[in-house]
Design a protein around this nucleic acid. Structure first.
Lengths: 188, 188
DNA sequence: GTATATTCGGAGTCACCACTCCGGATAATA
DNA sequence: TATTATCCGGAGTGGTGACTCCGAATATAC
């Protein structure tokens, strides 16, 4: 019932800054830097997020949730092919700016118990939905399944995040993958 | 001129163990663990490799060199298509067991000055050669170039290294990429 | 304006890890 | 076997980074 306003604002600022810091330096970036850039003391960070892992998790959950929402929005707003390929491009471009996301995308699959794993699962389901629709629309080969598509999504994301890849090369890389997913590609 | 034999043996054992340790835990694995598993004192590790970075570099150079040799060998032993696609598969399967390799593949591009960067460049050139031959043989689209192919190689490697991907899914993932590289894929 | 419960900052603690030092051990030589 | 130059192990050092503690500060309630 006391100073709710500024405390809440601080929490959100920390989250925003953390997304940025971990986005640039990966998860090995230090908590102190987050505090410094957020203009608060270290204690404030730890008061809101009891652990560095908790902070990282909060960042990831928010990021995953946003991506899931984006996937669902595209499902409604676009035709199936555009929704699927457009989201693929969107996610990879996003990952290019957020190292931690790529790391998390792959590792969240392993970590069984956490909100981040849940959020990651939700995203995966959303991608599955996108894929289904694209296949029903005949824009993607029928014989591909989610695991390999998701692996490709993760892989291209990580490539984009770690290699200094200009936009053009990234686009060409994705075009190759998309050609491989297209139904007209070399009949088995 | 004195104890050459055991010192040399120790150095090699350390290198072997380091490849394993960094392969499993990535580059953040500790030097002490390398020493412990190699059955030597920490000092012995540092006597042979003055720095953790130097040890890591030695591991990577050796690994890159092996892969480059493998690429060149396949160029001689197989027809162009089999050489290219076979090596692609080989590298990704290798990376699945060596986390550090995937990390290094992507980062060695950035680090300008080091033997690891040189070795990485040599590997890249070998892949370029493989690609050229495959294109000349008509097994790969003419309009793709090395940067995007290499990015795909790095990305699929990282996906294989971090996601618990069974062999089958990995193969299906690669089949999609290969279909995208094939000349019969959707004409632009 | 005063009281008070909440939040703040940053110095302090602790664990970990890269790296060094040095007295002891040992392979090669004679 | 005795000698010795080389190599060895592991305790010690310094620095970094996650996390805690507590006195100061401040927003709200009266």
């Amino acid at each position: 019932m006391a100073r709710r306003a500024d405390a809440q604002a601080n929490r959100e600022r920390v989250l925003d800054v953390a997304e940025d810091v971990f986005g640039h330096g990966g998860k090995s970036a230090s908590t102190e830097e987050v505090a410094r850039l957020a203009g608060v003391g270290i204690a404030t960070v730890f008061r809101n997020f009891p652990t560095k892992a908790a902070l990282l998790e909060a960042v990831l959950v928010r990021h995953f949730d946003r991506l899931t929402a984006e996937a669902e929005a595209r499902l409604d707003a676009h035709e199936p092919a555009e929704a699927f390929f457009g989201f693929f491009r969107h996610l990879v471009a996003d990952a290019a700016k957020k190292i931690a996301l790529g790391e998390a995308l792959s590792e969240a699959g392993g970590a069984a118990d956490s909100r981040a794993a849940d959020a990651s699962q939700a995203l995966r389901r959303a991608v599955g939905e996108l894929l289904d629709r694209a296949q029903q629309a005949g824009a993607v080969r029928d014989d591909v399944e989610l695991p390999e598509v998701y692996a490709l999504l993760v892989g291209t994301s990580r490539a984009a995040a770690h290699v200094p890849l200009d936009d053009e090369v990234r686009a060409r890389m994705l075009d190759i993958v998309f050609a491989g997913l297209a139904p007209t590609a070399s009949p088995a």
